[in-house]
Design a protein around this nucleic acid. Structure first.
Ligand SMILES: [Mn+2]
Ligand SMILES: [Mn+2]
Ligand SMILES: [Zn+2]
Ligand SMILES: [Zn+2]
Lengths: 150, 150
DNA sequence: GGTTGTAATGAGACTCATTCTCATTCTATC
DNA sequence: GATAGAATGAGAATGAGTCTCATTACAACC
């Protein structure tokens, strides 16, 4: 959580986004948001279950999907079979991912402003000639994390 | 298929890579390679099944995983629930992907040399300070393909 | 060109992350 | 504080991907 001064401001914005799609900001959803907003890294469902065991798996999935629909949460397909979840980019500084192809861990990294300008320009070039309408981009670095070298 | 003059050269290289991991280059594997090498875009399992129905699903999965282990094929996690497969980068020019978040289609795009230099430099920066050992990168543009705009 | 040991294959059972169902519990509004 | 609609929880269902094991192809030898 970086772009809000207080947790209350965060919750207010989440509530706004949920209301836009006629959804309530309930206790379960609040707990998921609080967890994701305070996490250093994207979390898998079992991460979430381990940290908030009182939320049933089926509800956690539904909360995440509702929050994603509202634009509050983003889903990442990692190199293992588990999806990972984090706050959407509106809630975080724009960043990219280091994906460990051994253990599936996802590490957040922040690019420089200059680099992002270059990426944005390039993305425009690439997509224009395809008639593709870009909404976002993802730069993932694939490799091995410190724990998984040798 | 771009880096080989003839299909025979392609097959020879595939055979070499398979032999390195003590695997034979059989008819089924050859059919999968021929399909992927001639495809304009990464293919899902059902794409493969549709185009080469005589290969059973379980064999197709195994072929793809063996070919991936040999470094012949790469697996892409798209934004839908289906993995997609393409020839590994040794067999193609380095390129990136446009991912349609509506239909899951994956489009290949080739970046300029200058852009790739920038990406490589940035990747080095990002990974160095994390103790992460990069093996490759993926720049995906997320958005909507021509078919999926409105 | 047969024999034999080993690798590859195919059919289908199985796994397990994710989604769906539906009975129950909240919650907003009157 | 009734009522209608929304959210929730428990468990069933789904389905992409993996595994098993009986059968088939192959390579290396004779
Ligand atoms: Mn991230
Ligand atoms: Mn590609
Ligand atoms: Zn790792
Ligand atoms: Zn599309």
């Amino acid at each position: 959580m970086q772009t809000f001064d207080t947790v209350e401001e965060l919750h207010e914005f989440v509530e706004l986004l949920l209301h836009r799609i006629d959804q309530r900001y309930t206790a379960g959803r609040r707990a998921v948001v609080e967890l994701l907003a305070s996490s250093e890294r994207p979390l898998s469902i079992s991460d979430i279950e381990a940290r908030v065991p009182e939320i049933p798996r089926s509800s956690a999935y539904r909360h995440l999907s509702d929050l994603q629909r509202a634009g509050v949460v983003g889903r990442i397909a990692a190199s293992d079979e588990f999806a990972r979840f984090e706050m959407a980019e509106d809630f975080l500084h724009h960043h990219h991912h280091l994906l460990c192809s051994s253990c599936g861990q996802v590490i957040d990294v922040t690019p420089t402003r200059a680099f992002e300008r270059t990426v944005a320009r390039m993305v425009d070039e690439l997509t224009a000639e395809q008639g593709f309408r870009a909404t976002s981009h993802a730069l993932d670095v694939i490799g091995h994390c410190t724990n998984c070298q040798h």
